[in-house]
Design a protein around this nucleic acid. Structure first.
Lengths: 336, 336
DNA sequence: CGCTGCAATTGGAGCGCTCCAATTCAGTAT
DNA sequence: ATACTGAATTGGAGCGCTCCAATTGCAGCG
């Protein structure tokens, strides 16, 4: 025992495990990456040695030696925009099953080296990246690993695959639903940004298809609660006859709720209000907002599978995938 | 002279940079870790070579060779509990300045190897960990790196430092404020979990100190919107005379709002409602909730500085730190 | 009973860095 | 010039793994 090479401050290595199990370090490595062709006897011996020593493989060493890290990075905008949560769960659902580690980074995690999230992941040797954010000022450039762009973002990048949710379709779904309820004066709260733009397009198409006049507010503004409040105020001022409003997202609808109540308009009695995203906010009892669900879990699953295909195969034939959204009706909308 | 390894199709290495700049790989390494004692001439030459080649240092190699990764891990409960966001910003504020990378992981990120977040970070060779979650079923055990427990959590761990926010004080602040407003019947919506327990204690102390009777609901229930709704319903049934309610957090207050409006009680006219956390929810125009701010940014700053002290020095004299909370008054509360 | 063939094991050579002891360089004093 | 110094720079030895070619073990076969 006392001639054990391993000192107490140092973590055990693959050699320690090998010695303990009476095998070579190579065999231990094979067991760790559970490759076939290891006899059951040795495998259990190694596994036992691992638990006895409390051995933790070093990801750094494995990455350096193996030229891949079995991990992928997910880049999001901001932890406050919770739409990524389901996306992430979808990604993990797939990646966990394949033994990949998923790490998340927001766009702002630029350290002292002014390193972008992208560069951060690259220097961590990730095997692939899911880009689920609005592209920063720098844009995103081709990098050495596969990239999948997920979500309703306007991003494009040479060689990157795309899995998007069909925002235009979702907005059309919403407007059609409102029209079906008998509304003839339907306004839209929009904002700056790619997904807001696509939702706006869907709104306009559907409104025109129904022979109605579009009413817009918030163009170029922030897609926040405050943005929704201000846009709603402007919309109400410009078009008091509105009986239904579709917000570019749930958060803006939340802001609109404040404006509406301030103006003495009851929801849904006076005006029907719709959000978009089916966030926890929309699902809450107090708001109970009719909204559109982008099915981000499914987007995540598709994104992960696409990325995996790029990583493991060399098969470039992956068409852009679009996940159809679903309408979620609740009590913030009512027949005219 | 034997410094010419080459990598044509692969990413450039430190050797490529060295050759390009006409120096040795060691000098490049010195520049990368900007250590003193490098002449300005060589430094700029190396820096230029780095940009020319688009060189990205390999974190894996640096970690393996250097015995430390210049990165720390932050473990959170769930991306849906947004209280960690400010905490994280505080941590980053400090860590960025020291060139440390911070990665976030939620408790559920156990991959196929049933690896806990803690183990995940350990195998990534992090230099330290901030634990900002309720301890899982497994609890947290001593590990080989410094750990700081941040936030109002009941966690303890041998050798770990603690930076907490004083939940009991915050609840007392809230009750005292309500009492000052003239309320004599003040109820509390509580839940399972460490921080809820401490807030409950503070509530009870303050209520008793004011000579009032405590009214509790939600014991052992979830600290969610639904939990707040159910607890509020129960509270109203048990004690209809209440004119003020303090929820264990903003989300529960959000649920309580639904219960209150369902029961025809106006806020703040009939009952004053307070949340806790000063989350974006409380700050919204539509809710405009009086609440308690735990100053999690400051908690993050302290946690990071404590961790840094443990990592860089060997100075064990760090007392537990407690960040005092602050009352945030808004329009959901009114004089009796 | 040696021989083939395949499965199970093993040692060695790196992966791209950091750290350290050794070396070179330049500046000053002799 | 020469010796002496401290600062700047360098090569070599790993860090803990993976990968690969080489080796061993052990069936079944002539």
């Amino acid at each position: 025992m006392s001639d054990d090479k391993r000192s107490d401050d140092n973590r055990p290595t693959i050699y320690d495990v090998a010695r303990q199990a009476g095998v070579s370090k190579s065999l231990v490595s094979l067991v760790l990456r559970d490759s076939p062709g290891v006899s059951e006897k040795r495998r259990t011996a190694v596994l036992q040695a691992i638990t006895e020593l409390g051995y933790q493989p070093s990801r750094a060493a494995a990455t350096l030696a193996g030229h891949h890290s079995r991990s992928i990075g997910v880049i999001i905008d901001d932890y406050r925009n919770m739409w990524f949560v389901e996306l992430l769960e979808g990604i993990r659902h797939v990646m966990d099953a394949h033994g990949y580690h998923v790490t998340v980074s927001d766009q702002h995690s630029t350290g002292v080296l002014r390193q972008s999230a992208l560069d951060g992941f690259l220097s961590m040797n990730v095997d692939g990246i899911v880009f689920a954010a609005e592209p920063g000022t720098e844009g995103i450039r081709p990098v050495g690993v596969p990239v999948v762009i997920a979500g309703a973002r306007d991003t494009t990048m040479v060689g990157a695959d795309i899995v998007r949710n069909d925002d235009a379709l979702g907005a059309r779904l919403a407007v059609d639903y409102l029209v079906g309820l008998g509304h003839r004066h339907i306004g839209h709260l929009t904002a700056a940004g790619g997904s807001a733009a696509r939702r706006r397009e869907g709104y306009q198409e559907a409104v025109q298809a129904a022979g109605l006049t579009p009413h817009l507010a918030g163009l170029g503004g922030p897609a926040t609660e405050e943005g929704g409040y201000q846009a709603c105020l402007a919309l109400l001022r410009a078009a008091p006859e509105l009986t239904a409003i579709l917000a570019a997202n749930d958060t803006m609808a939340f802001g609109a709720l404040a404006a509406l109540s301030e103006q003495g308009r009851a929801v849904p009695t006076d005006v029907s209000l719709m959000g978009y995203d089916n966030s926890p906010l929309a699902a809450s009892r107090y708001l109970d907002l009719t909204t559109v669900d982008n099915r981000n879990f499914d987007v995540g699953v598709q994104a992960a599978e696409t990325l995996l295909a790029r990583i493991t195969q060399n098969d470039p034939a992956i068409p852009p995938i679009s996940i159809p959204p679903a309408l979620v009706t609740r009590s913030s909308t009512a027949p005219r």
